[in-house]
Design a protein around this nucleic acid. Structure first.
Lengths: 188, 188
DNA sequence: GTCTATAAAGCGATAGAC
DNA sequence: GTCTATCGCTTTATAGAC
């Protein structure tokens, strides 16, 4: 019988799902052990800082994913309108049309926010900056771009809450469709 | 020395604040005891069903508050536009301009959602129905009214998430102001 | 790198005196 | 109605064998 050797890259996504499903406080080491198939010994081998470190690394990985797949395209694309459309598509896929919650939003609402204030703040700040930049380059004046980017972040988070409250992804899908046309319309 | 006799009506709001601040999982009986000044004996005297019952009664009280102060005016006012303006004002006050989170939203995002599915679902359903009704009476066609009411609920929840992530109420205040004019404009 | 055993603390909940 | 003491269990975290 060969032992399976775990790698950080495999563990983090499973860890993320546990935190998403149960929140920081609700994600116990037993649940994490089940989801990863790892005992506490292995878990503490990878994350000597315990639960706090696990959540911090998960948040960092989430941030990296968005940086590569969402923020960077918004910042560098020479077709900003197209990049905004791609953002909506990427977000819809990532959040499984509202069937998967945003861990950063969950953390922001909970008591763990204070422990991860920087991670939470920066995630939304960098998303907002990247989106506002794309809107400016597509013709919106700075103040309008900023208002529209705030609006977008807030609609995405709210749609996730409502979709989960109703246990129905329709409201999320419709919100993304509306958001897209609102972002790509110049006169608002 | 006279013992203070606690009443349910005094306990529930304190209980609500603990659940809001820590979420369902994070709200321990110790924290609840501190916040209410009551020992476990007293707590279990009032709530034999324990934490689950405490949260359920808090959710019911929240629902009642919104029913009286938000939903009923939307349903019965003969000046629906004015009722919608009042709703924005009531919500801004209740959520302290984004400084206080929505417990129903917090529960919806967490693992406790399944235990309180009915309460969570009904809260948003009744709010949505009341608001959509007011919008219809103020001249919006049914489909538009429904879309705008979904939009409103989602913007409120999202603004709460973003305000807490940024630790800044400005985004909430601005979102409410924008929402108000969007709801009261006929051609969208 | 993985596991089991274990520690110390905290959890929700109960019992019973007052 | 309130309290303290306590139960049984789970929690996070550590130690040490393999």
């Amino acid at each position: 019988m060969t032992k399976t050797i775990a790698e950080r890259a495999d563990i983090l996504p499973q860890l993320a799902e546990v935190f998403r499903a149960h929140g920081y406080e609700g994600a116990t080491l037993s649940l994490i052990g089940e989801a990863t198939g790892l005992g506490k010994g292995s878990l503490y081998h990878f994350f000597p800082g315990g639960k706090q470190q696990m959540a911090a690394e998960v948040l960092t990985e989430i941030d990296t994913w968005f940086d590569v797949n969402v923020f960077a395209p918004l910042r560098t694309s020479d077709d900003p309108a197209r990049a905004i459309g791609n953002m909506i598509e990427a977000v819809t896929g990532y959040f499984k049309s509202g069937g998967r919650v945003c861990l950063v939003g969950v953390v922001a609402l909970g008591a763990a926010r204070d422990s991860f204030a920087t991670e939470v703040h920066d995630y939304f700040a960098r998303w907002g900056d990247a989106l506002a930049g794309a809107l400016r380059r597509s013709g919106d004046p700075p103040a309008t771009a900023r208002r529209k980017s705030d609006d977008a972040l807030l609609v995405i988070q709210g749609a996730l809450v409502l979709a989960r409250a109703r246990d129905d992804t329709k409201v999320f899908v419709r919100a993304m469709s509306d958001l897209k046309s609102r972002l790509l319309t110049r006169d608002n």
